[in-house]
Nucleic acid binder design. Structure first.
Lengths: 340, 340
DNA sequence: CTGAAAGCGCTTACAG
DNA sequence: CTGAAAGCGCTTACAG
């Protein structure tokens, strides 16, 4: 079992042409005569030659690799996003080098450093905290950074999110219109922009209607956090009759507590609304009413932003917010004549 | 915003040493005096130098990149596996270049080819079909291949699976012991080794007990396939009182049909047993009895196998089967005094 | 231990 | 259009 690396030299020799000619044949847009191309392709096919992408990257300064940093995959939103991101990038000739990181500053910093060692052309950080300093370092190194489903202060990075504040407000209006009297919120992690924005939009819209939440607890984007919050709320003397939960992943945990643990009915006793619209939400077992984050459009915007910046370094970082619809299902009372 | 690439030359100049010296300081195990190391580190820190991994790879012939090919991420088993795989490989200084592929031979062949262009040190194919020819090409190129959660004929690749035949048999014995009279099977995709092995183990064990399944339908590992199969089975004059479903992902769809669509009770009317034990299975909404695939051990075996082969090319490919336990939950009647 | 030199497999001006 | 040459940023024998 011989491990023979076939190089452009070998092909050149067999085809009886120069090594540069071989290189040109495999460089889109380079000028080669049809005769040359034919000879070279024949020799290449015979030897099974393909250009070494790494060697090419060393010269061109582009690796066609995008680094993706992601914290955890239990929330189905992320696998779905990764799948879309990966396919979209592949279609453009790019590939994803994936790094798992704890969502801590030092971990993320280490990971980004490793990513830079690989000479990635760009970095996508999905729901992961980046310090201001870190994103400036990337910018200084000419590596575009786009935050996916999270934003933070600073102008050195781009960010793509759904319109979280508006989304939170939509849920509030929907629950009010549904005639709910005691509305509560199990918030997304308040250390994240999505958690804060959804909560702000929700509470502001409530206030605009002269209403106040009966309870607000940070669910930390975890099942345990959400489940505990649900137990606390339902143990109140006057428990809520509607809960807006900061994402679907937590909403499932809340429904589990209400139905399996407390024997309550959803939406009979409590209406539940989530945020994301992951595939699971449509399954009959949950049938969750939720504010959809349009993954497809978020991914398209992310890919366009990062590739744009790679091709034209002078482009300014931009913040994109994409509006999503409320998806009506069976977990929350639907106001009569509701049209959104 | 200047994009300055700092190279070992720059560091050498600043430190007043040769470029090779700088290289040695960043090469673990190379011989350098403490004084030299200190000078170089100081200069490197000042300039923010880090070695270019791509240039290094060109010489060493190792990229420290592992290609991962995966078909779809809706089944939660895969995100979980990717997360574990990624973390385990990161801990060893390797990283994952991820490729999504349709599970078709030509698509997979294309993807593998691209992976080889990136000079990956090894390839992990998760539940994806590889032709014999393809895995031989990788072997010829000196790139170890390990199939994760799938196997097929041929000795040119390694494979890590759970003990699927034994697992299928365990489920059969459990359902028989539970006193079920009409046992059916919604099989995993029969084009896959896992689907075939689980079915074979299940049917053989049934036969060994003098029993026959009342129905066997291929669920294709999809929600739709499984849901249709469930509808067909429940429409039989004498519907099953127990169904072994080829994986958890399908089992959820089956439970949705039984409970939400047909108004049946699980396990009151029908016992359901799945295969995988994804995190979702433990959620109260499903509470699914299932044969666990020990992801941690499967991942550990995969990492060990592929890194072993990278370090020692003479190692033979190997097939590893890892036994998993039946996890008892509420979706299937538990035989009295059952101890496994 | 250290430096000068060759070379990994390519791309890309530069002549012709 | 084509070839000879330089060079991308490193590692690694080879002398000293």
């Amino acid at each position: 079992m011989t491990v023979e690396k076939v190089t452009s030299q070998d092909v050149a020799r067999l085809a009886g042409v120069s090594q540069s000619a071989v290189s040109r044949v495999f460089t889109p847009g380079a000028s080669v005569s049809p005769a040359m191309a034919k000879k070279v392709h024949a020799a290449a096919a015979e030897l099974g030659y393909r250009p070494n992408v790494l060697a090419r990257s060393l010269i061109t300064g582009r690796s066609r690799i995008i680094g993706l940093v992601v914290a955890y995959l239990e929330n189905q939103f992320y696998p779905v996003a990764i799948e879309h991101l990966s396919r979209a990038l592949q279609a453009e000739g790019y590939h994803i080098l994936i790094f798992m990181a704890e969502n801590s500053e030092s971990q993320v910093a280490d990971v980004i450093q490793e990513l830079m060692d690989y000479q990635v052309d760009g970095i996508i950080a999905a729901s992961v905290a980046m310090t201001h300093d870190l994103s400036e370092r990337c910018a200084a190194a000419g590596i575009p950074v786009v935050l996916f489903n999270r934003d933070q202060d600073g102008q050195s990075h781009s960010a793509v999110t759904s319109a979280n504040t508006i989304g939170g407000a939509k849920v509030a209006e929907f629950l009010i219109a549904g005639g709910h009297r005691r509305i509560a919120h199990i918030a997304g992690w308040q250390g994240s922009s999505t958690g804060r924005d959804r909560q702000k939009g929700f509470l502001d819209a409530l206030a605009a209607a002269g209403r106040e939440p009966v309870a607000v607890i940070d669910g930390m984007y975890t099942r345990d956090g959400a489940a505990d919050a649900a137990r606390q709320m339902m143990a109140m003397p006057d428990p809520p009759d509607a809960i807006f939960v900061g994402n679907d992943h937590m909403a499932f945990a809340v429904m589990d507590v209400l139905r399996s643990e407390l024997g309550l009915s959803v939406p009979g006793d409590v209406s539940i609304v989530g945020y994301d619209d992951v595939p699971l939400s449509a399954w009959p077992a949950f049938d969750l009413t939720t504010l959809r984050q349009p993954v497809n459009r978020m991914v398209a915007a992310t890919v366009e932003t990062i590739l744009g910046k790679i091709q034209d370094r002078t482009l300014k970082p931009r913040k994109i917010e994409i509006d999503g619809p409320l998806i009506l299902r069976g977990s929350a009372r639907i106001p009569e004549g509701w049209a959104g």
